[in-house]
Design a binder for these strands. Sequence first.
DNA 1: GCTCGTTTAG
DNA 2: CTAAACGAGC
Lengths: 260, 260
Amino acid sequence: MKIATWNVNSIRIRLEQVIDWLNQNPVDVLCLQETKVIDKDFPILAFEKIGYYPYIYGQKSYNGVAIISRQPLEDVSMGFTTIVPEIEPEWDEQKRVITGVIDGVRIINLYVPNGSAVGSEKYEYKLGWLKILREYLQVLLLSNPAISMCGDFNIALEDIDIHDKVKIENHIMASEPERQALRDILSLGFADAFRKFNSEKGHYSWWDYRTAAFKRNLGWRIDHHYLTSVLCDRAQSCIIDVAPRKLEQPSDHTPVIVEF
Amino acid sequence: MKIATWNVNSIRIRLEQVIDWLNQNPVDVLCLQETKVIDKDFPILAFEKIGYYPYIYGQKSYNGVAIISRQPLEDVSMGFTTIVPEIEPEWDEQKRVITGVIDGVRIINLYVPNGSAVGSEKYEYKLGWLKILREYLQVLLLSNPAISMCGDFNIALEDIDIHDKVKIENHIMASEPERQALRDILSLGFADAFRKFNSEKGHYSWWDYRTAAFKRNLGWRIDHHYLTSVLCDRAQSCIIDVAPRKLEQPSDHTPVIVEF
DNA sequence: GCTCGTTTAG
DNA sequence: CTAAACGAGC
């Protein structure tokens, strides 16, 4: 099974690129983040036309996630509270979580809050959200040994995941509290698929639109596939496809594909 | 000499279409309206690359006119007050008038105010502006027997210039005071080049973006070439090129071309 | 409907 | 730098 994650930064703006990419890369599942569109305006038909089933969970202007699957998903669920009713409903106001099952594998697609700046209100929200995510995963793990969790985590776990032209110290997406929150999540039993195959520095999935970051290869690896051990053991590859980032009017993120 | 007038509704958005059109229709002079760009951002180079000299008179966001000429213009002048110093400088705050001479022919390119709604403040401005225009033309006529005046006049002089699905009575662009103001201008010695060759109804140069007006051919003929007698006598044709209005992301106006 | 500036967000 | 919403203007 091949699963891709791609923060498309507006599915309406990026639709043609995403459809083209899917035609050239017919993965089983494509997890999208930052669709930035309410469900009634999501371009469902474009995906159906090329043989995919879209499962969408969006809102106006911001956030929004979707799972595009070659075969129908089972047990689809949007948000935290559908899985863990005890979670405060406010945590589902921003549409950042969607999950479904395919061939016994639970796919979880996440758009982790960006956090703005270390110490800001949005930063606290990000840390709080990650704690909620951990609760959510704990519940799902009870009945799902095979979980493939992916998305835009907005966190680079190691310094080698970040170009060295930036002062990482207390930088958003690299601060110790964020990394610790992510480590706490992974300690539930997830492994980074990319790092099973590659331990080099200099592999990135996101380049800021500003300061010509892509041209200068000033990137960050913040889009991840995290697998439970049963899946990580059988994983065959995890690669970053830089090509879409080179197109005209690209997303600032590029797809990451795992195969197991 | 072939002269075209085209309200492009943003030269930056329409640049490719305009360059393509010029390559296919290598007129001597192209008069643009609603360029919507300050002079420093006007895409001068794109026109120079295909062998034209641009003369521009723009402002931020609104209005803006330009003359694109295959040979250099003489005696170029922007605004009313450069020609008639007595006119209040406020009438030149909106960039709507540019003129220049080529082969002894004075070209005047105008973007007449839209006027919003009959009776509105903008309507009064339009009527006032047309009176100022008349003064300006009177001065130019003193030393220029051969004048070719064109542009978006935002006035349909006759009912046959308007589709019949609209209630013309007191409609902006068709009200009697507007028509009379235009007739007062033409009485200085101008003739409608289009009507020298065509007296039918149903020929339009503008279709509202709204209500699918182009598809339903609900148009107005509000873009004109008005010639002094010496030029109208030798005029060979005046045609409306509907093709650009059929393109993707078109201007709401289409070019009108006169040859003399 | 379409374009523009502004604001908010990343 | 890029995207979306908003309000203006036509």
